[in-house]
Amino acid sequence: MPDRRSPARRLRPVLLLAPLVVLPLLLDSFSLYQATMILIYVTAIIGLDIVFGRAGVLSVAQAVFIGIGAYTAAWMSRTTTVSIGVELIAAAVIAGLAAILVGLPALRVSGLRLAILTFAFVELFQWVVTTFASITGGTQGLLVNPGGFGTVTTADPLVGYGLAAVIALLATWLVIRLQRNPIGRSMAAVKNSNLLAESAGVSTVRTKLTAFMLSGMLGGLAGVVLAHVSGSVTPAGFTVFSSLNLLVALILGGTGRVHGAWLGAAYVVLMPELFARLGIPNAYPIVNGAVLMLLLVVMPGGIAGVLDGIRDRVRRSGAAPPPPLTPVPERSSS
């Protein structure tokens, strides 16, 4: 089938991907590490966006899924010789199944009560990790052996960056596919109200559990890359504060928007560094809190919402306003 898109639209993916390819060649090692962290955050935040931004289910358990992915990778890297691809598959499956378990209460409760229930899962994860120290390393955590494909391993920061980029792009592709797909519409209906969803024939049970499962799988994938890039995993990296940080990033970036996760990830990784470079690292939490409050009140759509608003205004500037109800002309039967 011929590609009917305009040349500009056809070029758009290339223009968006080009910086991802060129960037690592221009960055020093610390900046490359930061770029990798942004990409890991992108994957994790897109996962959170699927469950919160698109299905409207408030969860603070995203750190658990990242933790499951990270510990799966750490344990497999130390006890097996499988490639990182196997670690990714195992982490996605385990975290996906765990997410379905976390999602089960969502079938009964919602809102703040559900958020508290998901918080209980974060605490349970912390308890498991610190209690079964022979497997998890307890509070000390585990060192992660470099993984990869044959001789190409994550010991090379470029490989870690490449892996993070591929997975972030995969997560982005997934959420774009969901957007205009029956699953995405089902999630939007569930977010609107259970009544609307069920009255359209949408199974709210299946939709919510699907959202949790996809969210968990992406969290798990992010966790594998995080473990290999960091070289170690400790329970301190997967607390409720880690989840809240992801939630803040998502809200700042813009929920329910593909680029919201990218903007939010860049914000939470780069802003602390910016304040550190300015010599006022302690000011970051205060400014961050103020920015969050301001955004929630003035720009509930986040940074992406503001950008989309500008784009929509430009598009609408020459367009005719939508008409009211008008008579429909008789159609000739053919």
């Binding site: 205009r180 029956p182 519409r185 089902s186 939007a188 209906a189 359209a200 024939g201 949408v202």
Partner: peptide
């Protein structure tokens, strides 16, 4: 279009 397509959910 998306809103009308939601009506097709019962056939999914």
């Amino acid at each position: 279009l998306d809103n009308l397509l939601l009506g097709r959910e019962r056939f999914r």
